[in-house]
Computed example of a mutant assay.
Amino acid sequence: MAQQIPVETVHLFPVLDKMLIDLLRSLSPDDWHKPTVAKQWTVKDVAAHLLDGNVRGIATLQGYESPPPDVQINSYRDLVVYLNNLNATWVNAMKRTSPQLLIEQLESTGQQYIEHINSLDAFAPAKYAVAWAGEETSLNWFHIAREYTEKWHHQQQIRDAIGVDGLLTPELFYPCIDVFMYALPHNYRKVDAPVGSVIQITVYSHTGGSWYLHKTEAHWILDKLAAPTTTNITITADTAWRMFTKALTPAEAENRAEVTGEHQLAKAFFATIAVMA
């Protein structure tokens, strides 16, 4: 019997890619310079970062091994700093590129990137682990799903900046938030609670759903099986994507949410990030 992929995302990459190209072609000259929730990055900077993701995926497809880090990485924080520097270097260089050329490069590399994703064995070890979920090794299906969340949330940042909806749909948003939730057990690893405690997280809207975080003897586990709850957290889809991608502070996210039951157990949820930041 074939193994079932926990979160299917491969089929969604072409959909996101076409939506991105159509969106970028519709932008006015002023739109490219609008600020986004990605701190210092404009719309154009975020688009350039998406191109960087394509280029790195294609390099892997072509068997190219990038040079090892030129600094010592001894911790998660070291890794984040290293990646942030790599990202900044690329984005700064791409400031010389015109929006039209950037669109053309995204369109041409997008197809090759999708070939890369489709070439991966879903249950083989991934080249890069999903570190924000606490994994030292990951399977390709999870790596691919993580890449989907990257492409989803960066395009959402662009749409948010220019006020154009499109990604908060059941087809596109639910897989993204489903993957983001995989960060919770790792983020709760130091949270003490009686065995049997259950935290229900509900993203309310036609795009959302409910997830349950259970405290066992050894750790916290995540599933979608309803159970008597200790704490209930309810947030909107808009709050969810912003919180998991660090566009909201924990306090801002909590102020937007509804919490019932043991409030203290909800604190770690609002500090959860599902990106390398």
Rank of each mutant, 00 (worst) to 15 (best):
P29M: 14
G53R: 01
T60H: 05
L139P: 04
A247N: 05
W220G: 01
Q155S: 13
A247Y: 05
F270H: 06
I73E: 01
S75A: 10
W152C: 08
W32D: 04
H186V: 00
V55R: 03
A218D: 09
N74T: 08
Q112E: 15
S66D: 14
K127W: 11
A145S: 15
E135R: 12
P68R: 15
L61W: 04
L83H: 10
T245H: 06
M94V: 03
V259E: 05
L102M: 03
D223Q: 00
L83V: 14
S119L: 15
F180E: 04
E252T: 03
D17L: 01
P35V: 03
L222H: 10
E107D: 11
Q111E: 09
D121T: 14
M19E: 10
H186N: 13
G110H: 02
K34V: 03
A122R: 13
A88F: 08
W152M: 10
K190L: 09
A59G: 06
M94L: 03
T216W: 06
T9M: 07
A161Y: 05
L27V: 11
K39P: 06
Q62N: 14
E252P: 03
L79P: 05
L222V: 07
Q157Y: 11
R146W: 12
V191L: 07
L24N: 04
T9D: 07
K39S: 15
L106Y: 07
T9F: 06
V71M: 15
G163T: 14
T234L: 02
E147N: 11
P29E: 10
Y182G: 09
R25F: 07
Q200A: 08
A129Y: 10
R256L: 11
T245Q: 03
T202L: 07
